[in-house]
Design a protein around this nucleic acid. Structure first.
Lengths: 202, 202
DNA sequence: ACCGGGTTCTGACAAATGTCATCGCGCTCC
DNA sequence: GGAGCGCGATGACATTTGTCAGAACCCGGT
C-alpha cells in the first residue's frame, strides 16, 4: 500500500526534483504536483492523496490558507507544511490551519520521508528546536489594528499613506505605530516591522 | 564522457533532491555537494568538476563571492548560478563574478540540464526575460558609501546607530541617506532600502 | 449598571529624520 | 594645473515620527 502524495511548490525545479526524490521511494507515489496555492484543493479532490506537502510561499493562495481550506474540504488528506523558513509564527499558524507536520527545507532528505510515514501513523511531526523557538516567541501581543498598521507600514510608506490606505486619521496611525513599537521592543517603525514579521505576528 | 557536477545549496533537502534529479541523467555525475559558500573552492579543487551549480543565498560566503574565487582559482570549472530570485542585480553581479550561466529555480527541470550542456559547449546561458529586466533596472546610481549606509539601515537602526557602526558623523549619514532616497525615488529610508534591494543595488 | 479594553479621534510636545548650502580634502582625467 | 567628483563634515531648517494625555464610542463580561 503506497502513500499517495500531493506536492505544492511554486518553484518548478524544486518541485520536480522533490517529486523525483520521493518517487524513488517504494512506498511513495506522487499523484499530483501544483505550483499555485489555489490549485491545491482542486488537485486534491481529483487525485485524493493521503498526504499533501505544501510550501508556504506560493502565488494565488499561500500555503497556510491552502492548508486550512484543504483540512475543511478534504478531511481525509493530511497536511504537511514544507517550507524554506523555520520562522516561529509560521509553525503556529500552520498548526492552527490544521497541518499535522512541519518540515523545513534544510532538513536532511530522510527527515521528509520519515515525517510523511509518521503522519500516516497519526503522529504529529515537528522539528523540536523549531517548536521551542515558537513557544519562546509567544502569542502575538498586537491588537488587530496594530497588526494592520504594521502590515501597511511594511511597504515603506509614510504615516499619511498608511492612514489613507486604512481610512484612518494620521494621529491614529501614529498611536498604533507607537503601541506596536513599544510591544515589539523596537525603537522605530522599521524595527517593529522586522521584529513582528520575524515572530510571525503579521 | 559524463559531465562532472558540483552542487552548492544551503538547503539540504533541495540540494539532495536536485542531486538525485541530475544523477538520473546519463551524462551527468554529481561529484560533490556542499552546503556553505566557503566550502565550494575546497570541494572543487578536490573533485575537479566541469560545472559548478551555485545558489546565491548561502552561509559562510555567498554564491556570488564563491563564483568569483572559483573562477580565479579553478579556471577549468564553469560556473552556473542557480538561485531562487531572478532579481536583476544578481544576474549582473553573477556575470561580473565570472558565471557563464544563470538559471532561476522556477524554471522547468529540463532547462537546467539544457543549460549545463550548453555551457559545456562554451555558450553563455541566461533566461532572456531576466536579461531584459536586468537591462531595464540599469546600473546602480548609488555611490559606494550610499550603498553602505543603506545596507546598515536595512537592520532597522537609527541614524545614530548607523553612524556608529560605520564610524561616520550623524550628519554625514543623513546626507547619504538623503541622496539614496532621492536616487531611488523613495520618500523615506524604508522605501529606499526596499527599492535598492529589489533592484539588486545592495 | 458598571468596568475594562479596543477603536478612533484630537492636540501638544520632543525627538528623529530629511533637505540644503557650504566647506575642505584627495583623487582622476584632460 | 584646473575642473570635476566622491568622501566627510558642519549648521540650519522644515518636516516627519514617536510619545503622551485625554475624550468619545462600542462591546463583552460581572
Amino acid at each position: 500500500m503506497t502513500i499517495r502524495l500531493l506536492l505544492a511548490d511554486d518553484q518548478v525545479l524544486v518541485r520536480q526534483a522533490l517529486g523525483t526524490l520521493l518517487d524513488l521511494e517504494d512506498d511513495f507515489e506522487v499523484v499530483a504536483q501544483v505550483g499555485r496555492g489555489d490549485e491545491v484543493v482542486g488537485a486534491a479532490l481529483k487525485c485524493s492523496p493521503d498526504v499533501a506537502l505544501l510550501d508556504i510561499e506560493m502565488p494565488g493562495l499561500d500555503g497556510l490558507a491552502a492548508a486550512a481550506v484543504l483540512a475543511e474540504q478534504v478531511p481525509g488528506c493530511r497536511v504537511v507544511v514544507l517550507t524554506t523558513f523555520g520562522r516561529a509564527g509560521y509553525l503556529r499558524r500552520a498548526m492552527e490551519a490544521g497541518a499535522v507536520g512541519f518540515v523545513v527545507k534544510d532538513a536532511p532528505a530522510e527527515a521528509l520521508g520519515d515525517a510523511i510515514r509518521r503522519v500516516m501513523q497519526g503522529e504529529r511531526v515537528v522539528d523540536p528546536a523549531l517548536a521551542v523557538a515558537t513557544l519562546a516567541a509567544g502569542e502575538s501581543p498586537l491588537t488587530a489594528r496594530e497588526r494592520d498598521v504594521l502590515i501597511a507600514a511594511r511597504g515603506g510608506g509614510s504615516v499619511a499613506e498608511i492612514a489613507g490606505s486604512l481610512y484612518l486619521s494620521e494621529g491614529t496611525v501614529r498611536n498604533y505605530l507607537s503601541g506596536a513599537i513599544a510591544k515589539t521592543g523596537a525603537r522605530n517603525r522599521m524595527g517593529a516591522v522586522r521584529v513582528a514579521d520575524d515572530r510571525g505576528w503579521l
